[in-house]
Design a binder for these strands. Structure first.
Lengths: 343, 343
DNA sequence: TCTTTTTCCGCAAACGTTTGCGGGTTGAAT
DNA sequence: ATTCAACCCGCAAACGTTTGCGGAAAAAGA
């Protein structure tokens, strides 16, 4: 390993018999410098393959052009689409991204945020862990650095938030079930500490209300989190119900797959006997038989939107504390064979 | 947004009536400093919540404690497990990670590597794009900064490489098919420019040879890349074969799922009529019916191993150019219903 | 011709940390 | 009492970039 090349302003200055300051100013088109000199400097800079030393810059100014991203779990498919949007957009705008995973631990989340601050990031994109109760801790960070919430958010935190329109998505899912003639629609959801699940549930309720269907607590099933196994368990529970529903809206695709497996095991026909709608349009929703009708979440767009709002906030630090907004990205329903028979 | 707190060595020095240099040395246990002073300084540092300015440090020394990771595609599930291993291990070792995606473009890959160098990363973890022909470009980077290849690698690049033992995995997959009594085993693979696929294919050949089965070119099917759709197409092709195979080893899980869909469409029984082995142990291999026997790749371990070798190389820059090695992480076969009937 | 303005550029300080060097103090050895 | 280590610690320079300030040269006005 050789020492890496390191051409500095000084080299350009010496080659051109100019001062370092003139070179520095030329490269950023300072008005004090003649166009002639500017051209000269830029040419020489390109010739020598000059690149500013990020650390000297970040040290002198306070800008580092780095953005920190903290998410609960990196290996989740939807998360990776969010990250893709973030990374692409960041690169376009000349920012670099540092990603860290909090493993859904509040304590770890705080540690990571501290690290980010100390690393000197210009701003932070945060997706909250499920057990984020102590909002005050988070608020302290907002006072130190531009921070916006995305995906897993909380209304209680006063900052800009970018999410998908969970409520509308839930509404559309149930509306679809109603439109295909289902009358008794169950829901498998998470317990109250999940913001996303709560909002989807609100959509469910609004749809029932809009179409004058009764709300029956006995077919509203919750559990702490919803992996596939939980879908099976809730499905078993549901089948105990003397008045079996003719459809179920599952808050996640995994849960929907688990539920479907159980229904099939009990020789129920999907969608004739019981229709299923999932959430996420994950890969598995497309490979099971029948394929699952689901909500498509444009993760890339959420990521892009989030980082653009963040960069905007970084560039305009004057914005008022109370001047934040919630941005809801629209979803779309993808209809497949778990709700309607397509030849 | 308030200005962020910025406790420097100077503050500690003034509070203790010491010089900045003494404080600096105390914090790194320099032998010139008395234990008494060291304790004093460390206590005050903690009290003031001092944290070294990364940029001043990275500027002064040449170490940045940042590691660059370049992968073809972030949204791939296996990639995300690799990243998880990398991120966790990096954090433990006090490094930060910058991730960038090359979108499987060679040109973009080069751009990203340049960016990483200019960013001043201490080392680079690289998973090659498929179309990486010009190895010389890559070698230039090796001369500038510690770099190791992982997952998607090339033997031609002289540096440490961390991969799974693809050949052994391929061998084990086919060996399993032979052991359950299959005699005529097809393979769906990628074309020659995929290192990983080539190695798995070699394992396939070795297994046939070991068990004295003939190699039949007519049931060795390749295509440029292998998504699910391609699995269906290759399966259709295979069914044209007058002498139908009784098993197929698919180089990816997606491909296996596609193939299975086609076989079922043609009313073939899996595994009785034709058995299937996939590769990756991805989520979809577990949700289709029947579930797919597949190779489990410990992505987290690969990631951990890769970054540990890299950090080692960073810490010992004296190592010789030719002193690199290839590390192959063992895989394991997960047997499911696509090869044997489990009640 | 002399002053005033404009244009263009260099000087030097500053950011926070690290480190070679040199100097002061202490205690022990001569 | 003098010398000599050993032990602590401070001075100052350096890393590459940015920027306020001041000044020389050229252009304009009188």
């Amino acid at each position: 390993m050789k020492k890496r090349q390191t051409v500095t302003l000084k080299h350009i200055a010496e080659a051109l018999n100019l001062s370092v300051s003139t070179v520095s100013r030329s490269l950023k088109n300072h008005k004090d410098i003649s166009q002639e000199t500017i051209n000269l400097v830029k040419a020489k800079a390109k010739e020598l393959n000059y690149f500013p030393n990020i650390f000297a810059q970040g040290f002198r100014n306070k800008r580092t052009h780095m953005i920190g991203v903290v998410v609960p779990n990196i290996t989740h498919y939807y998360t990776s689409t969010l990250l893709e949007g973030i990374l692409d957009e960041a690169e376009k705008k000349g920012y670099h991204v540092i990603i860290m995973g909090s493993k859904d631990s509040y304590k770890k989340q705080i540690e990571l945020l501290d690290t980010m601050i100390h690393l000197g990031v210009d701003g932070i994109l945060l997706s909250l862990t499920r057990d984020t109760q102590n909002i005050n801790q988070i608020i302290k960070y907002i006072e130190q650095v531009p921070l916006i919430l995305f995906d897993k958010v909380s209304r209680k935190v006063p900052c800009t938030q970018v999410i998908i329109d969970e409520e509308q998505a839930g509404f559309n899912a149930v509306k679809h079930l109603i439109e295909i003639g289902k009358k008794r629609i169950a829901i498998f959801k998470e317990t109250e500490d999940s913001f996303n699940s709560m909002r989807r549930y609100e959509g469910y309720l609004r749809a029932l209300k809009t179409y004058n269907l009764p709300v029956d607590e006995s077919i509203i099933l919750s559990s702490k989190n919803i992996p596939m196994e939980q879908g099976r368990i809730l499905a078993e529970t549901l089948l105990q119900n003397p008045n079996r529903p003719d459809a179920v809206f599952c808050i996640t695709d995994s849960c929907a797959v688990g539920a479907m497996q159980t229904f099939k095991k009990h020789h129920l026909k999907v969608p004739q006997d019981i229709a299923i709608v999932g959430f996420s349009n994950s890969l598995i929703s497309q490979v099971v038989e029948p394929q699952i009708t689901t909500i498509n979440q444009p993760g890339i767009k959420v990521g892009q939107t989030a980082i653009n709002y963040l960069i905007d906030e970084i560039d305009h630090p004057n914005v008022n504390f109370m001047d934040y907004k919630t941005v809801a990205i629209k979803t779309n329903l993808i209809v497949r064979n778990s709700t309607v028979l397509i030849p």
